[in-house]
């Protein structure tokens, strides 16, 4: 176990010792800061909870894109630079090496998300404070922080599925460009496809991955697919997740490395 933590530290080193990671981090902080400063100039009576929620929506999609970039590069990058050869000829099974990469990826995502949450709360708290009048849609008896945390949590599930898909594409096709391109295309095009597909009156439509995105609507009382329960969407995403993971591990374990 201790030895496995050393593998994760290696993967972390490969993420955080790169300038690009810190540029992403800076972008992620500058955008909500900009929104808040802009609001301070324009809005008469801004509220910290409203802006924390608004900015979360914007920056969570940025985190998705950044995490997809890191995921896409994670395995494919080692192949394209040839470092995969020196990485694999160590006394570690390929499964564990892949797992260390995946874990470091999830940690990266968690680190970015938690930093964002704390940062927006801090900035908006200091700049605006709460005016006590604003309530979230369908907030009921829930406190602001519980509501906000649920929103983050639901989004995080969705981000994990997307990032795992990028990780799978990266592992199977060994191309960072393809993994980034395809994941982002599916992410952006997914919404459009979902809108089009929902016009079709076919039972399989509900099982398409992107039809079940938008888990976070649950926080305000909705579900991703109007006439399906929340658990259905969760189960469909879980099904895709298992497939992505199984594909990644099967292919990575068996592949001949000829890079």
């Amino acid at each position: 176990m201790v030895d496995f933590i050393r593998l994760i530290r290696n993967e972390n080193m490969k993420i955080y010792r790169r300038l690009r990671t810190w540029i992403m981090f800076a972008i992620m902080l500058i955008i909500p800061l900009g929104i808040s400063l802009g609001a301070m100039a324009l809005e008469a009576d801004p509220d910290m909870w409203f802006f924390s929620y608004l900015e979360a929506e914007v920056v969570l999609s940025l985190i998705t894109i950044f995490a997809v970039i890191i995921a896409a590069d994670s395995v494919a990058g080692e192949f394209s630079t040839g470092t995969i050869k020196l990485l694999l000829i160590r006394p570690w099974s390929r499964s564990k090496i892949l797992l260390s990469k995946y874990v470091s990826l999830l940690l990266f995502m968690l680190f970015f998300t938690v930093s964002l949450l704390l940062f927006t709360l801090l900035v908006n708290g200091v700049l605006f404070g709460s005016n006590g009048e604003y309530t979230y849609p369908n907030q009921g008896s829930r406190s602001y922080i519980v509501y906000l945390l649920s929103y983050y949590g639901l989004n995080l599930i969705q981000i994990i599925v997307t990032v795992t898909m990028a990780f799978m594409i990266s592992t199977v096709f060994r191309s960072s460009a393809l993994a980034i391109g395809l994941s982002i295309f599916l992410l952006l095009g997914g919404n459009m496809m979902a809108a089009l597909l929902s016009l079709l009156d076919k039972p399989w439509v509900d099982y398409v991955l992107f039809m079940n995105y938008g888990l976070s609507t649950y926080v305000s009382g909705g579900t991703p697919i109007p006439d399906r329960p929340f658990g259905f969407s969760l189960a469909v995403l879980a099904g895709y997740y298992v497939i992505f993971i199984a594909l990644s591990w099967c292919v990575f374990r068996r592949r001949d490395v000829a890079a």
């Binding site: 050393r6 593998l7 080193m13 300038l19 630079t81 020196l86 000829i89 160590r90």
Partner: peptide, 29 residues
Amino acid sequence: VRQVGAIVENPEMYKYLTGYQNLLHYARM
């Protein structure tokens, strides 16, 4: 493989890391 040290084709290292960090990486494994 524990008994083997190898360079397969070119010695491709992580270019964005220092030489020392590269060695640390392999030493940790």
